[in-house]
């Protein structure tokens, strides 16, 4: 049977997000000739023009879609799926995608597999591999029906394969009724304030996670970072605890970094963090949990105690 694939484009603040290009690249690989479409909810022709890897852009234009709105965009996506009838819908397992995937599954009566890191089509059936339990377990799910939705973790596929200079055909899809009468109203975007340090510009980062135990231990890691000629960054819990500012956060809702050297202290390597740093050139992980998923991804690892190892490292580097 044929593979008609619909990728859901994401755009915030007038920019197409990388996840869209990841999904377009994978979609191109899986789709039949002429069978790759992309749903563009809101946005204009400038955004449509960047989606040339697809054969068609199915564009829903309406003032209530100008900025991402979970309520109106879910309704609009439902209308696109209804019209396109794809065999597979690819959406990001992202902040935007998490508001759309289940809504589409319910509205369009399609099965959903979330947290996917890979997708293959075997004998006409979609098989998606999900990363579960904080990256400790993988599950291969077969979509039983002829059509379904897969939400994909950002960073699973290269973005280059999804970019193209080509000009796709743009097909207008009529906005569903009721977009104006919603109970959720977009009020504005809030951009991050500039911090003392731009962690994306440093070649050496010392990343601190939950294993650091308390705020008083942060200076220990800063000394190591200084000795290495770098700065300290962190996983989410450290920022939630307000031990470091938000500008130091690496990962899904933080920043993406690509340093030469990334030393990880007490970070388990959950997918949300990996998304922000997996392209680091050299990853050295220190974590007392020998089953921590980070040891799958790091180049070097040790289960040595942070509080014994870090002072020894700093001393040698000073």
């Amino acid at each position: 049977m044929s593979s008609n694939i619909l990728v859901v484009a994401e755009h915030v603040n007038g920019t197409i997000d990388d996840i869209t290009f990841e999904l377009l690249g994978k979609g191109r690989e899986l789709a039949d000739d002429g069978g790759l479409a992309v749903a563009l909810l809101g946005g204009g022709s400038d955004l449509a023009g960047q989606l040339g890897k697809a054969d068609r852009v199915l564009h829903v234009d309406h003032p209530a879609l100008a900025d991402f709105n979970p309520q109106t965009c879910a309704a609009a996506l439902g209308a696109v799926i209804e019209q396109a009838r794809p065999t597979l819908v690819l959406v990001g397992n992202t902040s935007v995608g998490m508001d759309l995937a289940v809504a589409a599954a319910v509205q369009n009566k399609l099965p959903l597999v979330a947290y996917a890191t890979d997708i293959v089509i075997e004998n006409g059936k979609t098989v998606a591999t999900s990363q579960l339990y904080g990256g400790k377990v993988y599950a291969e799910s077969v979509i039983d029906k002829d059509a379904g939705i897969v939400s994909v973790l950002a960073g699973s596929f290269p973005t280059d394969a999804g970019r193209s200079d080509g000009t796709p055909e743009v097909v207008a899809v009529t906005a569903p009724d009721g977009l104006d009468g919603g109970t959720v109203t977009f009020k504005g975007l809030i951009k991050p304030e500039g911090g003392d340090v731009d962690i994306t510009q440093h070649e050496v980062l010392v990343a601190v996670g939950r294993g650091i135990q308390n705020k008083d231990n942060i200076p220990l890691t800063e000394e190591l970072a200084t000795a290495l000629g770098g700065v300290v960054c962190s996983s989410r819990p450290i920022v939630d605890n307000k031990w470091l500012p938000k500008t130091r956060q690496v990962g899904k809702s933080g920043l993406k970094v690509k340093p030469k050297i990334y030393v990880m202290l007490g970070i388990s390597g959950a997918p949300e963090h990996m998304e922000g740093m997996k392209d680091a050139e050299l990853i050295i992980a220190v974590n007392t949990d020998e089953t921590a998923p980070i040891f799958e991804h790091a180049h070097y690892g040790t289960t040595e105690d942070i509080f014994d190892l870090v002072p020894a490292l700093t001393e040698r580097l000073q």
Binding site: A154, T185, G188, G254, L255, K256
Partner: peptide
């Protein structure tokens, strides 16, 4: 407030 990647957030008003 809803978080996106890169520290950007959107604010929404919800009634009901």
């Amino acid at each position: 407030r809803k978080e996106y990647a890169g520290g950007v957030m959107a604010s929404f008003e919800v009634s009901g």
